[in-house]
Design a protein around this nucleic acid. Structure first.
Lengths: 313, 313
DNA sequence: GCCATTCATGTCCCCACGGTATCAATCGCT
DNA sequence: AGCGATTGATACCGTGGGGACATGAATGGC
């Protein structure tokens, strides 16, 4: 009677993503016939047609689209449950912080020190992920907290703002625009950001606030031509040096990478870089709560010009 | 290899809730031995001890607590996927709106009319649920949108504010306080709200904003003494009439229930009632988006004293 | 100390899942 | 238009896992 097994959901997602039973079966390390039957059973149990099969290709019905989206969410939730439970079962579970290296506004050291003072303190562990993956890392249970740059995909996450600082544009020193001291966004027309978006349309096209209209497929399909994702900051700076792209970076980051080939310039109408501490909404552990309080305190001290200021350059 | 089957998760949740293998087995319509082994397998697969078994009672380890919380979330996600897919598979899936009767600020008629004008319009269906269950109804796929009163549990939901209106206190006309025209919260000391909370501590104890510290078990345990929940507005008003409780109601609702036995009074330091339109975050359907826009337009018209104003009394 | 309660273990059986073989249908190529 | 290739569905079979029944072991109450 009551079905919707994880295995069948994974099968369906594989078929829906591949749009092909044979390839999906291959990906699942099984043969095609049981896969066909499993999807049929799923359709029977739901009383719904999920796939429109032509012998040449498989396409999703509206109900299939709904299940594809919701099944991914459900599978993520199951995987998160598994990861978090595994981690909680360790002898001394540590607090895992997802960072994009150097994108912490120089706060991390202070926060870790403040956290270590607290009675709820525990081991901490830094999980280095590429920018844009931090939110997902929190959702799927690989980390317990993250310092992220707004805007980000906040679905399923709680957050507190830490601090804001000016955003500068990094461009090749040879760029004609680098001769000017301050710019406006419109001046950057024709320049491109990491990921290929137009620089003068920022931040309209950037980030993912998790509101309606999230049309992009969140996970890479095996056959979709995967766009080259620039994950590493040093890689971005290399591309900036040779004039391929420009990049928007918080002030504190630019201070740490002074390079003669790169010019950092203020942009008058560019929003400030907002650093936010985020964690999974359902995280109720004392360690996370203590870490959040430590981070708030440190950020407040920095904002008011406290003792950590000198550590930020 | 890769486990975490839905069935096993349900088994574990049952055992964790009952804290007793025998009762859990009974609830699951099975016998105790296979249940014991299933939980053992779960522990093996996760490499974690979930339950501390004494022959007299079963209690959760820290890892077990984590899994109980995350497993509920995952199971909810699976159930939501099933419900939404079933609904999407219907010949003409309707837009289901979760309402607590009469708690719609009189906006519903106008919103439905405006929505019907839109090209994306479809059949609509009203799902009547008790207050406080609307958010869960959205999350588990039984409804597509809801008009809710803030504060509410906003986890997994997107929302737009519609309008605010004054909150009045409803009390028995015979109550000494009813002689006064306006009150302050502190005057209500000793009076009790539906659900048993102290009236003079509102809204500290009310609602559930979904942030950290949500310690309450969200689902009724079989053995926990279930507090009498007042679900129906008319039931609440009955209790108000006989002086058992007082209730905080938005102005538009009090207008619809003028009764000689009930006095509605302003409370100076009571926050306004904020009506919000909420929907599941992952809902990307055009129908929901159109409904949201229709609701925003109608609310804006009402706020500026538009044509719908007279319909609100 | 004895008994009842409760969870674990041993054993059997059946269903369901996966694999191999094959059929049917449609698209493309000549 | 006909033939082959591609692809999904069907048939059949064997194995493994989950459930019931019977029983063992340990602990708490009287």
């Amino acid at each position: 009677m009551n079905g919707l097994d994880v295995r069948r959901l994974e099968y369906f997602v594989a078929v829906a993503e591949e749009q092909h039973f044979g390839r999906a079966a291959e990906r699942l390390h099984m043969t095609q016939p049981p896969l066909s039957r499993a999807v049929q059973q799923l359709e029977d149990e739901l009383g719904v047609t999920l796939l429109r099969r032509t012998t040449r290709r498989v396409e999703l019905t509206p109900a299939g689209e709904v299940l594809l989206r919701d099944a991914r969410i459900a599978l993520d939730a199951v995987a998160a449950a598994e990861r978090r439970t595994r981690h909680a079962g360790q002898p001394s579970p540590s607090l895992r912080i997802a960072l994009k290296a150097d994108l912490d506004a120089g706060l991390l050291q202070g926060i870790l020190a403040a956290f270590a003072e607290k009675p709820e303190a525990c081991q901490t562990e830094l999980v280095l992920v590429s920018i844009g993956e931090q939110a997902q890392t929190l959702r799927d249970g690989r980390a317990d907290a993250a310092i992220v740059l707004a805007p980000y995909d906040d679905r399923g996450l709680d957050a507190v703002p830490l601090l804001s600082e000016p955003t500068l544009v990094a461009m090749a020193a040879a760029d004609p625009l680098a001769a000017r001291d301050t710019l406006r966004l419109a001046d950057l027309a024709g320049h491109v950001l990491p990921g290929g978006r137009a620089a003068d349309q920022y931040p309209a096209s950037a980030g993912n606030t998790g509101n309606t209209g999230n049309t992009g497929d969140p996970r890479p399909s095996a056959n979709a031509p995967r766009r080259h994702t620039v994950a590493d900051l040093t890689e971005i700076l290399r591309l900036v040096e040779i004039g391929t792209i420009v990049a928007f970076l918080p002030l504190s980051v630019t201070r740490r990478y002074p390079r003669p080939e790169i010019a950092y310039r203020a942009v008058a109408d560019l929003p400030e870089s907002e650093f936010v501490l985020a964690w999974p909404q359902q995280a109720t552990s004392r360690a996370v709560a203590a870490f959040v309080r430590a981070a708030e305190n440190v950020a407040a001290e920095v904002e008011t010009g406290g003792e950590f200021l000198d550590a930020r350059r």
